[in-house]
């Protein structure tokens, strides 16, 4: 789901890191992978991976391609592909993502919507649509 990357692998190709003792205010836009271990207020937008550490406190809207979240997030989260919420995460806001993993212990208060962004969900959608069509066809044949 995460291209078999663990946290250390993600850190090998990182564009920006917000360390534990740094506070960011404003629009934090990047194209690559971001690691947040500190505080952030405003918005985060990246075309890459977002890794939020367990000690991070984020009051912001988040947009990313993929994300693994372990800290406190107050704001909407929009992830194109996989969103992984770890057991230490507290999320206060709505989520929109392609695929979702929530670990035991995570707190989530908000609405959750799934987009057709990820290949996995597209595949599931297609197969369910096919199943629906075939079941409708079978019913029609039975009626005849």
């Amino acid at each position: 789901m995460f291209n078999k990357q663990n946290d250390n692998d993600i850190l090998k190709d990182v564009e920006a890191v917000v360390g534990p003792n740094t506070h960011v205010k404003g629009k934090f836009n990047c194209t690559g992978n971001i690691v947040v271990e500190g505080e952030l207020n405003g918005s985060i937008k990246t075309g890459g991976f977002l890794l939020v550490g367990a000690q991070a406190k984020i009051t912001a809207t988040i947009e990313a391609n993929e994300a693994k979240i372990g800290g406190i997030i107050d704001g909407g989260i929009k992830i194109k592909n996989v969103l992984h919420i770890t057991g230490s995460a507290i999320i206060l806001g709505d989520i929109e993502c392609g695929a979702l993993i929530i670990e035991e212990g995570a707190q989530f208060n908000g609405k959750c919507g799934m987009t057709s962004g990820s290949k996995e969900t597209k595949g599931i959608k297609k197969s369910t649509e096919k199943q629906k069509k075939s079941s409708v066809g079978e019913e029609k044949e039975k009626k005849k």
Partner: peptide, 17 residues
Amino acid sequence: NHSFNWLKKKPRLTIVK
């Protein structure tokens, strides 16, 4: 927090461009 964070293998730096 340098050594403490190093032991925890967490990013101890802030890096931005």
